[in-house]
């Protein structure tokens, strides 16, 4: 058996195991986003949105739909890999992978595949909710797919980075609670940054989630507060950076090898 065959089988095994893990506990992994986003659509899209009127030329519910979908996608992609890797460290079964004859990039690929798939599955569920509330339509189908894929990938990688360094359960909830949630809420999900004062608008440009939300919004409703190319460059650049960073720490065993 050559190394390529081992890598492929190991990759399929790991990603299958991780996908099976999040599907097995779907009431904890898939349902919460569906329930939360239904409430967001109901409260902000219908009750409040009806009084807001148009935002950048589209109805408020159509305006917030891409941001809400993206919010669910990145949170789930992040949590999946952060929790998946950390629970492996916590229970010790990460050693099953560390002793196996596979390079670090196979481990990285296995975990991120599961993170991306969870992000996309939850994204599809929320798109279903959006269709109920807003008559969901897509302006640029392929762009929408690319952005949802890249965003899931980026946050899966970020979650894995977190999971590698986490020493306890608090460490994997700190980043989503104190960093990811504020960045998402302030990332133009509920408003156009053109409505902000120059200071807040400039500050918002340092928020990476803003670029994902706007690129995704462009894919769905065809409007964006920022340049699409800039958004894609930032998305791809950060993905490459986190891929290299993760391979570096996995190769050296930082955070999990004595």
């Amino acid at each position: 058996m050559n190394q390529a065959q081992i890598n492929l089988t190991a990759y399929l095994t790991l990603s299958r195991r991780e996908v099976h893990r999040f599907l097995r506990i779907w009431p904890q992994t898939i349902m919460p986003s569906a329930v939360t986003m239904t409430l967001y659509f109901l409260v902000f899209g219908k009750f409040v949105g009806a009084r807001i009127g148009l935002m950048d030329g589209v109805s408020y519910v159509d305006f917030i739909a891409p941001g809400l979908i993206m919010m669910a996608v990145i949170t789930n992609a992040y949590t999946n890999t952060a929790f998946g890797f950390f629970i492996g460290k916590f229970q010790g079964n990460i050693e099953e992978l560390l002793v196996a004859p596979i390079p670090s990039w196979v481990i990285l690929l296995g975990y991120t595949t599961s993170g991306v798939l969870r992000g996309i599955v939850v994204g599809l569920v929320v798109i279903g909710v959006a269709m109920i509330f807003g008559g969901f339509s897509v302006a640029h189908f392929w762009l929408m797919l690319v952005v949802i894929f890249l965003s899931s990938l980026l946050f899966s990688l970020a979650g894995l980075f977190n999971g590698v360094f986490a020493k306890n359960f608090d460490d994997i909830s700190i980043v989503p609670t104190f960093l990811l949630t504020p960045l998402t809420y302030l990332g133009g999900v509920f408003y156009s940054i053109n409505l902000l004062s120059p200071f807040w608008k400039k500050l918002s440009l340092f928020n990476p989630v803003l670029y994902m939300v706007n690129a995704f919004r462009y894919g769905i409703v065809g409007i964006s507060d920022i340049s699409l190319w800039l958004a894609m460059t930032i998305l791809i650049g950060m993905t490459v950076l986190l891929t290299v960073g993760n391979i570096y720490i996995l190769d050296r065993g930082i955070g999990f090898r004595a």
Binding site: N7, T9, L14, R17, L97
Partner: peptide, 10 residues
């Protein structure tokens, strides 16, 4: 079976 998979066993 997962452990076998990590070693490339179908």
């Amino acid at each position: 079976c997962n452990q076998a998979g990590y070693y490339g066993v179908p």
